[in-house]
């Protein structure tokens, strides 16, 4: 989307303005938009949950490569029975 905008007259005008002294807020906003962590998708609960789950699986494996999450799940099932 940004690549397309750059090719338009508006995009080129914005670029020229951003290079001037009054363009500081524009440059700040562009840096914010470019930063991955500011994407809205990162704040959705299901995405946060997904990331956390992957990090938990990895952390469990790093702690004990021979057990991991499957072992934890199996123990949980055993406890229920």
């Amino acid at each position: 989307m940004i690549a397309k905008l750059k090719k338009t007259a508006l995009g080129q005008l914005l670029y020229r303005v951003s290079r001037t002294q009054v363009g500081t807020p524009l440059r700040y906003m562009a840096d914010m938009l470019k930063n991955n962590q500011n994407q809205r998708a990162h704040s959705l609960p299901q995405h946060k949950k997904h990331n956390q789950r992957q990090m938990d699986i990895l952390a469990a494996f790093e702690r004990n490569p021979h057990t991991g999450i499957e072992h934890t799940r199996a123990k949980h099932i055993e406890a229920k029975q």
Binding site: N36, Q39, A41, H42, L44, H47, H50, N51, Q54, M55
Partner: peptide
């Protein structure tokens, strides 16, 4: 395909 940030 389940890597961290796969949704983006």
């Amino acid at each position: 395909l389940d890597f961290v940030d796969n949704y983006v």
